[in-house]
Amino acid sequence: MRLALDGDAHAYRTLLGAITPHLRNDVRRVLMRAGRGTADLEDIVQETLLAIHLKRATWDRTLPFTPWLNAVSRYKTIDALRRSGLRKEVELDGLEDALPAPEGHGDDALDSRRLLDALDARQREIVEQIMLMGRSASEVGRALGMSEGAVRVALHRALRKLAASFRAGPDGTGTHEN
């Protein structure tokens, strides 16, 4: 993380990739204990990764990284549980048994579409090019006729919007903030 905060993107990718399985295990454990299915698992993992990314400046680099990481993960998982709990009470109370259980990661496509809906066309284009085509910001800029800096600004706004739409929940209820 120290290297990553200094701008080493390779170190950052490696770090996020390495902590993801741990996050997934932690989130799964909390979901199980709460008696929830794991349908939202990958969603919560990604929301946590996004929070780690956006709040990385709040980690004091003179202190151990793990307590900070666990605190972020716990906060986001509990927040997601609370949200889905509210949703279930309102809409899905007693319906869970009647609904087909989601298989594995079958709802990934749905999630990404829902998330991308929060973005405007330009932001969606940028996010898709980076995520699905593996392009860098400068490559995307060339493809869309934007400067690399403009792409980065749009990307950062898009990520903040994604965080807000995660917070709001899929049906758009909850707090709307940037």
């Binding site: 990553a4 701008g7 993107a9 950052y12 990718r13 996020l16 990739g17 993801t20 399985p21 990958e42 993992v45 990604q46 990764l49 996004l50 990314h53 956006l54 709040k55 990385r56 400046a57 709040t58 990661h105 990934d108 999630d111 990404s112 996010v127 980076i130 995520m131 699905l132 593996g134 860098s136 910001a137 980065r152 990307l155 950062h156 990520l159």
Partner: peptide, 27 residues
């Protein structure tokens, strides 16, 4: 350990592209 689902891997790619945004310290 189960295989990494594609989407989260791509999502990390997205976050890494935003690394230069360098948020300042809120304190």
């Amino acid at each position: 350990m189960e295989p990494e689902p594609m989407k989260t891997e791509h999502f990390i790619q997205l976050l890494a592209e935003d690394l230069p945004s360098r948020p300042g310290h809120p304190g």
